[in-house]
Amino acid sequence: MANFTPTSAAIGGALIGLAAVLLMRLNGRIAGITGIVAGLLEPQGSDRAWRAAFIVGLLAAPLSAALIGYAVPIPRLPSNFAVIAAAGLLVGFGTRLGNGCTSGHGICGIARLSPRSIIATGIFMAAAMIVVALTRHLVGG
């Protein structure tokens, strides 16, 4: 397991959890990125100010990191834009249909012991693992 980084994973994960708890204690909201983004996109979306502020904070993290000399990784994505666009459409439509993503279901929902979120997380993890198995190991990855 040469790529395993347990220490940074634990520190980063704890920060994500702390941010989610703080958002509930301060503003009474779930830290689900899907819901936050969708509320900004939809015409009758509500509470745009705090949603936009959260996204600004999210974007400010890597920018501040670059300013203090922390190496921000350049994302490595498939070269085929059609694959990226298809993935984006599936993620956008799927997270809205299922009402949550990795943060909303995977962290906030499981923390509330919500059966909905536990099942959703199991399904999207399994689906993603199957896709990776097919693309990396079957289709000449």
Binding site: I33, T34, V37, I55, L58, L59, A60, A61, P62, L63, V72, I74, P75, L77, P78, V83, I84, A86, A87, G88, L89, L90, V91, G92, F93, G94, T95, R96, L97, G98, N99, C101, T102, S103, H105, R116, I119, A120, T121, I123, F124, M125, A126, A127, A128, M129, I130, V131, V132, T135
Partner: peptide
């Protein structure tokens, strides 16, 4: 909707490795 939505999201996530949070955050790059 919950089951189908989670499955569609998982397929997209597995294709590129981005979910909404890291997707939006990576715009900064």
């Amino acid at each position: 909707p919950l089951l189908a939505g989670a499955a569609l999201f998982g397929i997209g996530w597995g294709l590129v490795g981005l979910c909404p949070g890291p997707g939006v955050e990576n715009l900064a790059t």
